[in-house]
Design a protein around this nucleic acid. Structure first.
Lengths: 140, 140
DNA sequence: TTTGTTGTTTAGAGGTTTTCTAAATTGTTG
DNA sequence: CAACAATTTAGAAAACCTCTAAACAACAAA
């Protein structure tokens, strides 16, 4: 097993990514990864940290989110042109995006298939296929 | 045929959308729709207009892009959290997004299929399914 | 054509999210 | 511990977009 204690799990994650386990990064790691898959914005995570009495600046939240994305601990999901979302689930999957609540919901990678994709232009290499299903409230 | 003169085509488009054919809207309409499908940003279209000696403010470019989107003359494509893209092709289709050149390329709607989509949560209604294939340079 | 009304445009201010800067702090290594 | 490098931070700044209120242009009616 990897460990059931949040602290050493967080520590292990950071070490594996080659990032120094600072107080701020440990705290953010725990917020992000201790309770199943999550979708966060920088602002939202910062608020959460403050509510948790973790002293961390917004700049550091941004830095950390980007470093974690770099290290593939997170994935950025682009669904809203005004805000960036980060997803703790880095495995192959897609998203529902609820346009009224601005919330993301995972669609497991194997619950959906993209068929018949035409080849990319100029022999470019496919980096990722992202499917976003925009949903609204029930039409009742 | 609808008309081969750009002016009356633009006029017809605006009338059909219930928008007054002002000098600015006519000029932007021509830039947008006279030469096949396009993907533009507000900043980019504004630059183009200036290069074309069309006097129009950036605020009007934004207003116009949004009104056209509202009227379904354009579609917004969300691929980049720092900028909004607008697509003159409003029919069912998807996109390649070249991450190095920041350019969009259409994938015809029938050149690709999304199969097996799980039902949306809480009986929410699906508004649109968007597929973005992010591509990078050839790995040569 | 003139006039009144309403819709449109505009410059500039302002908002929001994100990045940058440079100084202070912290973690790590010898 | 000392020295060095990485990290954090507040605040300034950048980028993109929206708002405001005043000027202006399109349209309809007379």
């Amino acid at each position: 097993m990897t460990s059931d204690r949040p602290f050493s799990a967080a520590l292990a994650r950071l070490r594996a990514a080659g990032l120094r386990p600072t107080r701020q990064r440990l705290a953010l790691t725990r917020l992000l990864f201790s309770n199943g898959d999550r979708h966060v914005t920088a602002e939202g995570l910062h608020r959460e940290a403050k509510a948790d009495r973790v002293q961390v600046s917004l700049a550091t939240v941004y830095n950390t989110l980007h470093q974690f994305t770099e290290a593939e601990l997170l994935r950025e999901v682009v669904v809203d042109s005004t805000r960036s979302y980060f997803d703790t689930n880095t495995s192959h999957h897609h998203h529902f995006f609820c346009e009224d609540s601005q919330r993301l919901i995972d669609i497991p990678g194997d619950a959906m298939r993209v068929e018949n994709l035409s080849p990319p232009p100029d022999g470019a290499t496919v980096r990722r296929i992202e499917v976003v299903v925009r949903v609204g409230p029930p039409k009742d």
